[in-house]
């Protein structure tokens, strides 16, 4: 795997830089592609295996014999398969993402946007509140000792279980739509941000704090010029955790009210009516959203840390 740079054929026929780049890509991408390809193969095999029972039952009822190739052909095209084949999900995704107007209720983009807007709103709230609380914790000893153990302990309890209650209670006092889901997203992203930000704001070393003290810097100056910049890597690490948790919160928040819009609602209605293809496409869409959100945070992190001269 690790061919020395000067090995024969190391950059054969290309400039050194391009050859090196190509080899780096091949070294990284090839194994990932192989694994992804393996996943697809397993998926197809599982689809044939899991759906074949239904095909055989149908054939037995009709009193027909089916050959193996007929079984395979049938299992990959069923309407309500136990496990839809990848291409069925792809067709459904194409139908609901590209073909439909994005304002239509049948469009997956529409549902994804409903969920995403709740996610982003909640993530914003949770992050701001988390940072504020972390600032308080770092500057106030009593607050640190009171709140911090609870913030850490909250990571060990399944707070997602409160989601249905929040939705229904807010519904009964007349708050509906985006806000209840956003609140769930907010509290799921809140704790990772608090915990990460506290360790970030505490990350400056004694030497650096001493230097600012010799400059006679005020607490505010120490905060703006040392603590806050030093906390950025920690902040982004917890933002990545937080935004993924926010999305999960928004999706789960759509379950209990039997909402009709949003990715969670698509999952729920799919499971009520046995529309497996719909469940899978909603699931893929949720995965794409999660990857997109985490990717955006990662990109912002890269830019910010680079501008601050902190990228490793």
């Amino acid at each position: 795997m690790n061919i020395p740079l000067a090995a024969p054929g190391a950059g054969a026929g290309r400039s050194g830089r391009v050859g090196l780049w190509l080899r780096g890509v091949a070294d990284k991408a090839l194994p990932v592609l192989a694994v992804v390809a393996a996943i697809f193969v397993i998926w197809y095999a599982a689809a044939v295996w899991m759906n074949s029972q239904w095909t055989l039952d149908q054939a037995a009822r009709a009193g027909q014999e089916v050959t193996f190739s007929e079984i395979v052909a049938d299992t990959l095209t069923q309407d309500r398969p136990k496990l839809p084949a990848p291409h069925q999900v792809a067709v459904e995704l194409y139908d609901t993402v590209i073909d439909k107007e994005i304002t239509s209720r049948r469009s997956l983009v529409f549902h994804a946007w409903i969920t995403l807007s709740a996610t982003l709103l909640g993530f914003g709230f949770g992050t701001v509140l988390g940072i504020l609380l972390a600032v308080g914790i770092v500057h106030n000893r009593a607050m640190d000792m009171s709140v911090m153990p609870w913030a850490i302990a909250s990571q060990t309890i399944p707070i997602l279980a409160i989601a249905p209650m929040i939705i229904v209670v807010l519904n009964s006092v007349g708050v509906q739509g985006l806000v209840p889901k956003a609140i769930i997203s907010a509290y799921l992203s809140f704790f990772p941000v608090v915990v990460g930000m506290v360790s970030g704001l505490r990350s400056p070393q004694g030497m650096q704090m001493d230097l600012l003290r010799t400059y006679n810097a005020s607490t505010a100056e120490v905060f703006w010029k040392l603590r806050l910049p030093a906390s950025m890597p920690y902040l982004f690490a917890s933002l990545k955790v937080g935004i993924a948790a926010s999305l999960v919160g928004a999706i789960v928040g759509e379950l209990p009210t039997g909402a009709v819009r949003g990715l969670g609602a698509r999952l729920l209605s799919g499971s009520y009516y046995g529309q497996t293809v719909q469940i899978w496409s909603a699931l893929i869409m949720a995965a794409v959203c999660a990857a997109l959100l985490v990717g955006i945070v990662g990109a912002v992190q890269k830019i910010v840390l680079k501008r601050m001269g902190m990228s490793a």
Partner: peptide
């Protein structure tokens, strides 16, 4: 791939697995 999947909302597979 594992890192990617670990960040996904895996809880969404629940309806499928219940089925």
């Amino acid at each position: 791939v594992g890192n990617f999947i670990a960040a996904l909302p895996i809880i969404g597979t629940a309806p499928i697995l219940v089925m």
